[in-house]
Write a protein that binds this DNA or RNA. Structure first.
Lengths: 202, 202
DNA sequence: CACAAAACTCGACACAGCGTCGATGATCAC
DNA sequence: GTGATCATCGACGCTGTGTCGAGTTTTGTG
């Protein structure tokens, strides 16, 4: 009990500022297009001057990268279908539904990231790694099912995984502000497309 | 014969300058990332000062839009499959092959355009219209085949058309500097994917 | 071929956003 | 309380964009 009375240090001022910048970024990137948000806006939103921003982050994209990394962690937890064998339609639906919900909740950040990869090599390689890891997990699942004979496709597993990613990105990219019904519709379309691509006609 | 000796006026100086800007742009956009090309580069490449550039085009993206419009005209001529009924695998292959070749030949411009839509509303809406028209043609073909019973998909035709576009963009986006073999591979993968999505297992 | 209108050119200017530097103020550890 | 580290900010310089207006060149027409 010797330490009980001692006030815990808690997060330092700097930590709180950094969090404030991230909060401001989350808000701004959610409601405005990426390029229209300046470093000045970010700093202002966190209650510091533009120059002070540089004490915490080297660039605007570094902030976005931090945000993306958090979103990705959440997303990565939803990949239950990848661990199953065969079509596993219920698990596929679950995976698609949770990821779609996450996508919708973070639509602003994700679309800013899609924009910013064009300009920032740092973010591009970060997202490249994320996607590669995702595609690799999907490809492994497909390869497994090709081996056990459930998957009927002649397309190489990694190409097919890329295709599925492309469809998902395109469809989920329209999810900003979508209703639950629209979300379920997107999930249904995606589930059918994946089933057809990997396992052939139902 | 009265006019024979009279020198034809030909394109005015301004027309030639405009063409020179477009030529310079084609070259620069083909070998450098979009944002790294400045208006100064474009003007310099056409042999005029930066300010004179503005006499011909209001923005950098206006030049890219002009370039894209030309590429699109070529691309639009390759859509033979859309006019056929049923799977028509040979026509599908022809369409995919010509469009893949065109894509590879204009890879620089197309990837610059993909970059620039993020920043330019003008280009975004131009490309939006282009894509919408393409998707509409694809959707009509799918709808026709749903009506005549060859297409088995339950996915709404326009959604399916969007998916096909997404796959095509993703796959052809890797085609810069690809060999003929790689190109054929891409076409094969795409053909199978489309066949599976629309008509079910072969 | 003269000459006015139009087509075209460019230097000077103003501006937005980024990034650096160094001087200064706040905080913490002992 | 004091030295070291943490944090803040104003001043500065840079790059790229876009406008203005004063010039020059080209072109059609009499």
């Amino acid at each position: 009990m010797s330490q009980v009375t001692r006030r815990r240090t808690g997060p330092s001022k700097g930590d709180r500022r950094e969090a404030a910048i991230l909060d401001a970024a989350r808000a701004l990137f959610s409601e405005r297009p990426y390029e229209s948000v300046t470093i000045d806006d970010l700093a202002g939103g966190a209650g510091i001057s533009r120059t002070s921003f540089y004490f915490y982050f080297p660039t605007k994209t570094a902030v976005l990268t931090a945000l993306m990394s958090h979103v990705w962690d959440e997303l990565a937890a939803s990949h239950v279908w990848f661990d199953a064998d065969g079509p596993a339609p219920e698990l596929l639906r679950v995976q698609l539904e949770t990821s779609a919900t996450l996508w919708r909740a973070n639509a602003g950040i994700l679309s800013c990231a899609a924009t910013a990869v064009a300009t920032s090599g740092e973010l591009r390689s970060f997202i490249g790694r994320i996607k590669a890891r995702y595609d690799e997990r999907a490809a492994e699942k497909i390869r497994r099912d090709q081996d056990n004979g459930t998957a009927t496709t002649a397309i190489p597993a990694h190409r097919l995984a890329e295709m599925i990613s492309a469809i998902r990105d395109a469809r989920y990219g329209q999810l900003a502000g979508a209703s639950d019904a629209e979300l379920r519709e997107a999930v249904g379309d995606l589930a059918e497309a994946i089933d057809r691509l990997v396992y052939g006609r139902a």
